[in-house]
Design a binder for these strands. Structure first.
Length: 270
DNA sequence: CTGAGATCCTGGGGGC
DNA sequence: TGCCCCCAGGATCTCA
């Protein structure tokens, strides 16, 4: 499932592969996957547009268009954005295809159909519910302390809340909590200042290391060029139930917290 | 505001 | 071996 490092990797790949190209054709085979503002036709609006640059906000891929509008893509669990040469069959489970200048096409594929490609107007505040970017200057230890203050919510559930921190998902929440030696179920308000500082550093560290490895491919994640990431080999706890903790050697356990699988070490996460 | 629960989907894993 | 059932999982919406 693509989280911040995977989406960042995809966005960088798209930036080098399709930035500057114009959209010559649009094919939508599953209409719910392609959303446009009211009374506007997705395909018709996009034809003739040009993709200026591709970036990321939280777990969303953001394609800035020449008109000032944007194409915002949510990949959810199984969504993919794949750039291909126009010849040959499209990527499996492609529901939206953008035919681009220069003989390329962008396939938006998704087995489970949870993802969305949304055309947003220039003045549409589409990201107004998203929280702080954890790799931005504004994510300071002080800001993090304020975010957790007084909250009874289990710290892991809080890390997954996109309204607070945008981009952290299940994999990196588990990994950061292990790195900071914090029990996932700890109420946020019960964490000490040093623990919060450790966790702040761990979040930034694990996200940066994962980006450097081009993301984690535990299921079937691939980037815009169809390549797998490398961080799955560096995971400390996620998906490692029964395997020895890399720090203390005790077996990693799996529990359920906030309706999500949660992997952690009972011995060294207090 | 906050949290809990439902919802959307389908491949694949587990159970028999 | 083969078949069927059921579940994971992110964001969004409803409801308390």
């Amino acid at each position: 499932m693509p989280e911040l490092p995977e989406v960042e990797t995809i966005a960088r790949g798209l930036q080098s592969a399709i930035a500057g190209r114009s959209i010559a054709a649009v094919a939508v085979s599953l209409p719910k996957m392609a959303v446009a503002p009211p009374n506007l036709a997705f395909a018709q609006e996009l034809i003739g547009e040009r993709i200026l640059e591709v970036g990321r906000r939280g777990k969303y891929v953001v394609m800035a268009l020449a008109s000032g509008r944007a194409l915002v893509v949510s990949l959810r669990m199984t969504g993919r954005l794949i750039v291909q040469k126009t010849a040959g069959p499209p990527h499996p489970y492609t529901h939206v295809t953008l035919g681009l200048s220069g003989g390329r096409r962008l396939c938006f594929a998704d087995v489970r159909q949870f993802g969305r490609m949304r055309l947003v107007a220039a003045d549409e505040p589409w990201a107004d519910r998203l929280g702080i970017e954890p790799l931005s200057q504004s994510f300071t230890p002080q800001a993090f302390i304020g975010m957790l203050s007084g909250r009874p919510t289990p710290i892991k559930a809080l890390l997954l809340d996109q309204r607070r921190i945008a981009g952290v998902g299940n994999i990196y929440a588990c990994e950061a909590l292990w790195e900071a030696r914090i029990r996932p179920g700890t109420p946020a308000k019960r964490l000490s200042r040093p623990a919060i500082r450790r966790l702040h550093g761990a979040i930034v560290d694990v996200l940066e290391r994962a980006i450097a490895m081009r993301g984690t491919s535990v299921d079937d994640y691939v980037d815009a060029q169809g390549l797998r990431g490398g961080f799955q080999n560096k995971l400390s706890v996620y998906g490692r139930e029964g395997s020895p903790c890399r720090r203390c050697g005790k077996p990693i356990v799996r529990t359920v917290l906030a309706q999500r699988g949660t992997w952690w070490c009972k011995h060294c996460q207090k």
